[in-house]
Design a protein around this nucleic acid. Structure first.
Lengths: 256, 256
DNA sequence: AACACTGTTTCACATTGTGAAACAACTTTT
DNA sequence: AAAAGTTGTTTCACAATGTGAAACAGTGTT
């Protein structure tokens, strides 16, 4: 229909493209609404949605809108990829969140973006809250910059070539040369700062998590409002995060 | 092919049936292996797997076996169903786990089974560890018995009629009349015990979580080895769990 | 060298999915 | 109260799409 989808099952592709729509926007969709969004015929959309509903992948609201169903939650929790990372990070992240009283994130580089695998939220009312399983740009987050700093030379040069460094705030790094310089500093200091580069008022600090071959497999960050995040705290924050990181590292020594 | 699947998309159904196989057993499957398991033709299976792989729903191991992919993890984390329950339970569960030093589970009744929505693990080495998103029989778990005890009369009589009360240990309740009597006691005491009914050496205690209409929407359980779980602790455990439950109840008053 | 496994491609066949249009059950507008 | 919007759902003729036996192409084992 579009390109050369050699021998792939078109219906299945369509079904998942329907589910994909839920990633970027609303939680509830009607038949015609989804049909317009995807460009599929109403009837086709209707039947795919009915099928997904019969499987529990989608479920219907009282007002006939479709939302993502429990079966999908269930399947998602079975995914073994990064599972050890997710499991072993849980308790250390909670400890860090408790000690620093800010939200802690744990992520890996998936393609060109940061994938958030786990988190532990700040006990305070004003806090950062991110969706586990969601993605964020790498160049304007502390986690992302750590992971970029320690990724391979080829991946990095590919990244620089292809990525549009979009300004999210006045502090976002938008110049490739500046980004490379920043990454070099991160490698030297073994931590990254995000000083309101993604969002005004939001500051993050991140460090790498190594496996036994000193390959960086993930990154931990602490994120909080600029009102609480003072320069004099960085040192103590780093030692707390590093303690958590080495706890994780102990368990994932063989991770690759 | 099987019954009257009025107008449903067969390819999509097959694709998800392939994913379903991952729920009950292994994490890695080859093409022919999955074909045999599902009864589908090798070629059909191969093409469905290729399609799912191209979507990131599955991914291939170095040895050509398929495992569940990140995309599925991502989609699973988007599911809004029970999301508020999951979110608001996190911190109270952690607090309970910290206070009691045993693993804490949080679940709802989904169909005839207990669906585990969240957990907080014991800080100790010897501990219970359950897969979030997984299911367990209701009649032989503390959470399940609580949820059954507070479910509607119709649902309960349906349950009793259809469910086979299989003995997992010598302590499992296998007689419908005994189960009904046990549920009655649970309603009277507002908590349930599982004295090694699912697994030898495993003891659980569970209480209901109410919404503002006094409808039970979930249940919290504490699970630990019989060596640590003494009768004299029950009272103090209950008060700790109840504190957590009321914390959750405060947030989910309107949940239905 | 023969066998037993994998995953993959081919090709003739018809089952299966398709989409315009009609329908039914609703709100909102006239 | 009628008309014009919505919505989800069903119909039906048509062919595109998915199917599966068999052949192929790799690996590892006997």
């Amino acid at each position: 229909m579009e390109e050369v989808n050699k021998g792939l099952n078109l219906s299945v592709i369509k079904a998942f493209k329907l589910l994909d729509v839920y990633m970027n926007s609303k939680q509830e969709w009607g038949v015609r609404e989804l049909a317009k969004e995807t460009g599929y015929n109403k009837t086709t959309t209707y039947r795919l949605l009915s099928t997904l509903e019969s499987l529990g992948i989608l479920q219907k609201n009282p007002d006939d809108k479709y939302i993502l169903g429990i079966k999908l939650f269930e399947l998602g929790n079975l995914v073994p990829v990064y599972k050890s990372l997710r499991n072993y990070s849980q308790i250390p992240l909670e400890q860090i969140a408790k000690d620093i009283k800010e939200t802690v994130h744990f992520g890996v580089l998936s393609g060109d973006k940061v994938l958030y695998l786990n988190k532990a939220e700040s006990p305070l009312g004003l806090k950062v809250s991110t969706q586990i399983g969601s993605y964020q740009h790498a160049y304007c987050t502390a986690i992302g910059k750590v992971l970029l700093a320690y990724s391979s030379q080829e991946h990095l040069s590919d990244y620089i070539k292809t990525i549009e460094l979009e300004a999210h705030t006045a502090h976002t790094i938008t110049n490739p040369a500046d980004l490379l310089k920043a990454l070099e500093q991160i490698r030297a200091k073994e931590y990254a700062l995000d000083m309101e580069e993604l969002e005004l008022g939001l500051i993050c600090i991140a460090i790498p998590v190594f496996n036994k071959n000193r390959k960086v497999v993930a990154s931990i960050s602490v994120a909080g409002p600029s009102s609480r995040f003072k320069a004099e705290n960085i040192k103590s924050y780093l030692s707390i995060i590093r303690k958590g990181a080495s706890e994780i590292e102990r368990h994932i020594r063989d991770y690759d």
